[in-house]
Each structure stands twice: as C-alpha cells, then as structure tokens.
Design a protein around this nucleic acid. Structure first.
Length: 492
RNA sequence: GCGCCGGUGGCGAAGUGGCAAACGCGCAGGUCUGCAAAACCUGUAUUCGCGGGUUCAAUUCCCGCCCGGCGCUCCA
C-alpha cells in the first residue's frame, strides 16, 4: 500500500515512496527552543508523527531528520535579557520539548540536529553560494542570497514575484541589500551578541540556512520529503529551495507536506486573544495527554482544526470507549472458534482503515471503521456470539489502529505526574486545577480498599454505604463499573 | 488590497453529480443493573453559509456575496 500525499510543490496528491527504494528520507522543520511548545506546534508534530507511523505500518523504513533551532533573534534577545548564554537559555526548553513529545507519544526522529552544532556546514554552503555569485556580503559583514540568481524562486508557494517592486518594502536596517527581497544567509555580529568566528566573518547564521545545511548533511542533496507548518511554506521553505538548488542543481525535496494551522474557539490562537495554550497548560488544567493527542490528530492535517475544550472532552470519551472495549476484549472469556460475520467485519475494518490513511492521511475517515468494528464486536459479545478467533482478529485491527493513533495504552497518569512535578519545580502550582490536585491525592491502594469495602457492603445488601463510597470516589474522578467478573475502576 | 483554503445536525467532523449524508461526542427513550457505570437498541441534518447559473439530477461543478482562516513580515 502506497501513501498518496498532497504535495505542495506539484499542487496535487502524489504517491510518496522512497526514491532509493529503501528508506524514506524526510526532513521535518523542528522547534525554535525559546519557550514551551504550544498546541499549535504540537499539532504539526503530531500530524508528522501520523505520517511517520503510517509509513512504518506499511513497511516503509523512515530516515527522519528534525532540526532544533537553538539560535535566533528571539533566543539571543531573551538570553541577553536573562543575562545567560544562549545555551543556558535554550537547554531547558529543548528538554521540555522532548519531554512534551514523549507525553504526546510523538516518536522521535532518527536524527535530531541542533543549529549551533552545524555552523561549519552552513558556512560551507554560504561559501559555495558565494562562489557561484548567488551570495554577497554587505559592508557591515552580513551575507545575503541574491534572489535573481534563482529564477525558479516562488515555485513552491506559487508566488510570482516578478511584478513585485524592488524596494517597496525596504527595511531601514537592511538598506545595504541589492534587492529588497534578498534574504539573510549570515548576520554580522553586533556588539555583545552571540557570534561565531568563521571564514566568512564573525556573525551568526540566518534562519533558513540551517535547514538547507543540515538536511543535506544527513539526507543528501536530494531527498524524499520535507515537512512543516503551513506558515513555513513562504518564505522559509522557498528560501531553503533557493539556497540548496542553486548549489546542487538537483531537486532539493521532491515532496512537500504542510500542516494546516489550528484555531482555538474559532479564532486564531494568540497570546493577546487569551486563547494561547501550551501542552503543559492543558495538563495542569487536568486534561489527559491521550485526549490531546486524539483531539489533535482526529482532524486531517490539511484541514483547519478548531481546538476547543469541548473537543477535548469529546476526545476523552472517544478514547475511553476504545480503551474500555480493548479491555473487554482482552479480559473476556470467549469460546473457541470464530464467527464468519465478525471475521469479515474485522477484515473490512482494517482495509477501510488503511485505505483512509493511504488517502492523504485522512484520520477522520480512518477512525470510522474502527468504531464500527467496536460496535459490531460489542454487540456480538453481548449476544455471546464472539469467539476467541474473532478476538484475535479484532485485536490485530486494534494493533494497527494503535500503531498510528497510539491512544490505547494508558500512560496518562505518568504524563500528568510529570507535568505536576514540573509545575512544582517551576513554581507554577497556582496554575494547577484544584480538582486535579484533589484527584492526585487519592492513591490506587486507597481506591482498591474503598472498592473492596463497597463490594462487601453490597454483599450485605447495604446499598446505602455502597453508594456512598461510589459517590465519594466519583467526586474524586474515579468511576466504578460493576460486572460479572468484578469491579473495574478508572480515573476520569 | 492581492493570492490560497474552508463554511455539512446541539458540537467536532467524513464524504459524494443521483441508492438511506460516515464516524465520534452530546441529548431523549428503552434493554441490562439493587441503583448506577459499561454495553446494546431506537430517535436526534427531507438537509449540506446566502443568492444565482449549468445539468434530467448539485451539498458535490461555475459565478457573485457574506463569514472564518492562512500567506504577502517573525511564527507550527
């Protein structure tokens, strides 16, 4: 099964397969580690995780490289304001970012590359550009890319810049540029700023050059796929193409994937709107990591996602339904044999699921057959018609579902504990939702003991006491389920 | 302003030129249960932003308008 993925470069859905027939070489624009990641950032990384996991599920090995931008204007400014080095400033945010990826079960790329550790590669690339006349240095020592050296500029974002008036938008600080649209490759050192002493002068890299240098370093001059948020299409990716192809004369990345932005409550997410959330904000509000993952990947990457707290609650319920079912299947006792209808249903569900994902990663469509199978199987279990062979067949479907969605295994409590530990250490306990704290105070052992007491009360037909215990637990977010096989409890 | 994308039930959201408009959540009623929960069943858009057009037939194609978003500047 080959993935059909929209390609920004060609403007249509193209098949995505490794050019070398072995591993799919992909470069994903990563974070600038100047702050904690917000849910918009993570929507992009989650959608790329879906892509990566689907490729792996279809048997395509992946060579996935992601940059970590640990030097840029904001970092330099913030580090200076804090009176620390940029390394000291970015290290905790990088650590937090990786921890957040783990919280959301985003698989790590095969290779992560820090910009500051590849300065030499960037300098080499700028030198090559200078050799062919595509880069020039200004009097104050900055280097710029000469846009006129790359006639294909605009081919990714489909922009025709020929009509653009040179000089229409000249920034007063950049008056030395030959053309207003020429972009910075290297910024000359300013007094007191972090800089590197290199053959092309003392300074620091422009933003775009790192991705060209590092992708070529790890993936070669031409590779299969380049990804990022939709905002990066222009100018970042366009600039990467110009820098790279001017030197290599090869197609930089053959396939480009851009993830759509999300909205929050139907509005653009922004700090000034007051609808800006980091992952940690949500965890401290008491939402589960799995709910966030499910909510963010349930809308296909090419569509705008409207993030709401109601949507998060919906996702929680959806995940709960799946987990309850998976548990029912795993712990139930079923007769030997198999049921033709269920075997067929499982087969169809798996095929529909794979087809939906192969169709430009349509995650919304992919969920449907899974839920349909859950209903069919639940019905069969209720009627006593599900056999052990059916359980096995359905579990295989769930396994493939979870190979991409990864919400069935419950690690939410650990993620929340980690967030709380961070809040404690960062002095942010005041941001923690009170009911989350109340729930944390209840240990599994205490719950088990109360459940046992309730069971005893029930056996003595002391329903008043039994209900009292159930209500107490419910107030602390613990839900009980009585069944023939005993009592199950779960934290909401 | 220019370019691009979207506007489907109470909410999220899939989808198609024409058979009953997926799926999830929610809500109402029922089965089960000591009562719940879970699970199942039934119901929940004669309708797909608004106005025109093309067509035997449009939510699906075309035009205009309104609304939201993105890009044109740093941004996932």
């Amino acid at each position: 099964m080959t993935l059909r993925l929209f390609n920004t470069l060609t403007g249509k859905v193209d098949e995505l397969a490794p050019a070398d027939g072995k591993a799919l070489r992909m470069y994903a624009c990563g974070p600038t580690v100047y702050d904690y990641g917000h849910i918009g950032n993570f929507r992009t990384f989650l959608e790329i995780d879906v892509l990566r996991r689907f490729l792996l599920l279809t048997g395509v090995p992946v060579q996935h490289v992601m940059n970590i931008t640990d030097v840029d204007d904001k970092i330099i400014r913030n580090a200076a304001a804090a009176g620390i080095s940029i390394q000291e400033y970015t290290a905790p945010f990088e650590k937090a970012f990786l921890e957040d990826l783990d919280t959301l079960k985003v698989q790590h790329p095969e290779q992560m590359a820090r910009a500051t550790e590849h300065i030499d590669k960037m300098v080499e690339l700028i030198q090559k550009l200078a050799e062919v006349g595509a880069a020039y240095q200004t009097e104050e020592g900055s280097w710029y890319f000469r846009l006129s050296a790359f006639p294909e500029y605009g081919k990714l974002s489909k922009k025709d810049l020929s009509g653009m008036e040179d000089g229409a938008r000249v920034d007063v600080d950049e008056y030395e540029k030959d053309s207003a649209r020429d972009f910075a490759l290297w910024k000359a050192a300013k007094p007191g700023e972090m800089s590197w002493d290199t053959p092309i002068g003392r300074g620091r890299p422009g933003w775009h050059i790192e991705c060209s240098a590092m992708s070529m370093e790890y993936l070669g001059p031409s590779f299969d796929l380049h990804t990022g948020g939709e905002d990066l299409m222009f100018p970042h990716h366009e600039n990467e193409i110009a820098q790279s192809e001017t030197v290599t004369h090869q197609t930089f990345a053959r396939h480009w994937m851009h993830v759509r932005f999300l909205l929050v409550d139907g509005r653009k997410m922004s700090k000034s709107e007051g609808n800006f959330y980091t992952l940690r904000d949500l965890l401290l509000k008491g939402y589960k990591a799995s709910s966030i993952r499910m909510a963010l990947i349930s809308v296909p990457y090419r569509h705008q996602l409207n993030f709401t707290f109601e949507g998060l609650v919906d996702a929680t319920a959806a995940v709960e339904r799946l987990r309850t079912f998976a548990d029912r299947l795993a712990t139930g006792k079923f007769d030997e044999g198999s049921n033709d209808e269920l075997q067929a249903a499982a087969k169809k569900a798996r095929a529909d699921y794979m087809d939906a994902l192969a169709n430009d990663l349509n995650t919304a469509d992919a969920r449907a057959p899974i839920f349909e199978l859950v209903r069919a199987a639940n019905t069969a279990i209720d009627k006593g018609e599900l056999r052990s062979g059916d359980r096995d067949a359905i579990q295989l479907v769930l396994k493939d579902f979870d190979a991409v969605f990864d919400v069935l295994v419950d690690t939410d409590a650990e993620a929340t504990k980690r967030a709380l530990a961070w809040a404690e250490q960062a002095g942010r306990m005041n941001e923690v939702a009170p009911d989350l704290l109340a729930r944390q105070g209840l240990s599994d052992e205490t719950i088990d003991a109360l459940v046992a007491e309730r069971t005893q009360a029930k056996q003595q037909r002391n329903f008043a006491r039994a209900d009292q215990i159930r209500n107490e637990l419910a107030e602390k977010g613990v839900v009980l389920e009585d069944s023939k096989d005993g009592v199950r409890w779960k934290r909401k």
